[in-house]
Each structure stands twice: as structure tokens, then as C-alpha cells.
Amino acid sequence: MEETELCFPQLNTSCVKPKRPLSDTVLIYMILSFISLLTSALNLLVIISISHFKQLHTPTNSLILSLAVSDFFVGFILLFQSMLIDGCWYIGDLMCVVCCCIDYIITFSVVGNMVLISIDRYVAICDPLHYSIRVTQKRVQVCVCLCWICSLFCFIVLLKDNLKQPGQYNSCVGECVIMVSLSEQVVGFFIYFILPITVIVVLYMRVFVVAVSQARAMRSHITTVTVQGSRKVTAKKSELKAARTLGVVVVVFIICFSPYYFVSLADQETLFNVSTAAFLTCLYYFNSCLNPLIYASFYPWFRKCTKVIVTLQILKSGSSDTNIL
């Protein structure tokens, strides 16, 4: 008989490591580490750009900043997730609960930020005359703070039993098990997935209809506008471009998150094999790496900011006043 390998050989209650070729383990480690570093680096560029340059201190960019902060921490979560590749958790039961708590908080904050972004674009496109009055920097900051506070409250409610005694649901030493009842999973599924996705889809359908009508109106009157009118058209084009860019972010978010949520509720052992479940989990986390790439593709200001940051021109005095729009 082959000798089984334990996570902690000195303990009889240790978990058994699953048998997997070393090449597969190394490859998975490399891929997850690369995605983790890339996710953290790209989102750090977004955070520095919006925080440093004064021209980017707008309500919409404040929401993008909050989303980038969430995505930045996803990179750290991936590093901890990679520890479970060989089937063993080496850093204790308390860290297991802490990592899961951070995961829950970030997940809920990402969903909340997506809803706020959708509301922001809805008001900007569908009610542009009152946008500057209804959507102010201070109100956005309050909404972002409430989003993070609600995320913190949600994880306390869902993981309250696990927080009382970390590791109580582990069957052996070296395991990281977090128990959430089926009823809590179902309630969380509707409150933090079905409801937000419904709101996002409804708002963006309305934004799409209004944006198409505005684009047609601008094309039909483009030759008869005055100088003042041309400025209004430019402003409308800017809002439409922002709506399109953030619309892509929202669509990518739905594509990446939807399979993971359905898998989390389904019986993975009967409906999905381990490889499929692992792929959908990686897709779920990879969404945080895609958002900065979308900004780089659609936002010229992000490319300019990246150039200033990478070339260290950001260290010069007065760099925060640089014209990057």
C-alpha cells in the first residue's frame, strides 16, 4: 500500500493531502500567483490615479475608486486561496475565518459598488439636468461608506457561528471549513445576487434606450448647434462614453459572478466535478483583474495616469494638478 501524506505528519488527527501530480500543483500556483499580482498592481494604479489627480475627483470616479479598492483586496485573497491547492490549511483556524470574512466583505462591497455605478449612470443619462444636484461628491462618499458598512454587517450575520469558535466544523487538522446554513445561503443569494442584478439590468436597459435616442438626436442636429450647444453635445458624448464603459464593466461582472453563485447553491458533487467548480471560482476572482483592463481600453485618462505613475513623474511637486483629461 502507498503511504499517505498528511498535512501535519506529527499529528494523528491531521488531514490527508490529496494526490496530485507535482507539475499540476506548480502550474496552478504560478497561474494564481500571476493573477494575484496582476490584479493588485492594476487596481493599485487605478487607486493612485483617482486619489492623486485632482481632475479625477468626481462622483463617478469615486465609485470606480471604491470598486478598485475591493478588487485590490481580491488579489490578496487569491494568495490565501492558493494555499488550499494541496488540500491543506497551514495558518490556523482563526486565519481561516478571517480570510473568509474578508472574502465575504469584498464580495458584498463589489456587488454594492456595481449597483451604485448603475444608479449613477442612470441619473446621468436619464436625468442629466438634475445630475449635478442629485449626485454630489459628498453623497457618493456617504453611499460608498454605507456600502462597506452593510458588507461588514452581512458577514457578521452570516458567519456569527463560525466566529464564536473558529475551526469547530473542521473534521481534521489542516482543514478550512466555514459553515453557512442552506436557508442563509438562499436568503443571501436573493439579497446579494438576484436583487442587485435585477436592479442593475433594469437600470441599464433604461440607460441603453435613452442613450440610443440621445445619440440619434445628436447626429441629426450636429450641423445646426451653436458653440454653446456644441459644448452640451460634447458633455453628452462624455456621459454616453462613461455609460458605455461602465456598462461593459457591469456586463463582465454579471458574466463572471453568475456561474459562481449558481455553483455555490448547487450540489457540486453531483452537478459539477472539482475541475469545473475550480474554474468557475477562478473566473469569479478574475473579474477583479479585468476591470482595470477595461478602463485602460476605454479611458484615455487612465493610460495617461499610468504613464505618469510608471515614469515616476507623479513624484514631482504639483503633479496632482497635471492635465490628464
Rank of each mutant, 00 (worst) to 15 (best):
T281S: 15
V274K: 06
C282F: 13
Y261M: 12
F272C: 00
N273K: 01
N273L: 01
D321R: 09
K307F: 08
T281E: 14
I294M: 01
F272Q: 00
I309Q: 01
V251I: 07
V252W: 01
I314T: 09
V308F: 09
I255G: 04
A296L: 15
I254R: 02
F257K: 08
S320H: 04
Q313T: 12
A277L: 07
L315H: 08
A277N: 08
C256K: 02
K316L: 12
V308L: 14
S319A: 04
T306P: 00
C305V: 00
V250Y: 13
V274N: 07
Y295M: 15
C305T: 00
Y295Q: 14
F286N: 13
S275V: 15
K304V: 10
C256I: 03
Y299I: 07
F298Q: 07
Q268Y: 10
E269W: 05
L280R: 10
F279G: 08
S317V: 14
Y285T: 13
V249S: 12
P300S: 06
T311W: 03
I314S: 08
I254V: 04
Y260W: 15
V274W: 05
I254D: 00
F279W: 05
Y261I: 09
A266S: 03
L293P: 11
L265E: 06
I309L: 03
F286I: 14
S297N: 13
V250H: 15
F272H: 02
K307I: 08
V249K: 08
N287L: 11
F302W: 08
V310Q: 01
Y295N: 14
F253E: 03
A296S: 14
Y295D: 14
F253H: 04
L271K: 07
S264W: 07
F286R: 11
Y261D: 10
V274P: 05
S288F: 03
I255T: 05
T270H: 06
Y285W: 10
P292A: 07
A266V: 00
Q313G: 13
P300F: 06
S258I: 04
P259Q: 02
V263A: 11
I254T: 02
L265Q: 05
L265C: 05
F279N: 09
N273P: 00
V308S: 09
F279Y: 06
Y260Q: 14
Y260N: 13
Q268E: 11
C305I: 00
S258A: 07
S288P: 06
F298C: 07
L290I: 13
F286S: 15
Y261Q: 11
L271I: 09
T306A: 04
F262W: 06
L280P: 11
I254W: 01
T306I: 02
F257M: 06
I309N: 01
T276S: 12
S288Q: 05
F272D: 01
F286K: 12
F253A: 04
K307E: 07
N291W: 08
L265N: 04
L265H: 04
Q313V: 11
Y285Q: 11
L312V: 15
G318T: 02
G318Y: 00
S275R: 15
A277P: 06
V249E: 09
L271V: 09
L315K: 08
C289M: 10
V250E: 13
V249F: 05
C305F: 00
Y299Q: 10
S275L: 14
R303M: 10
V310D: 01
V310H: 01
V263W: 10
L315Y: 09
F257Y: 06
F253M: 03
F262N: 03
Y260E: 14
L283V: 13
L265D: 05
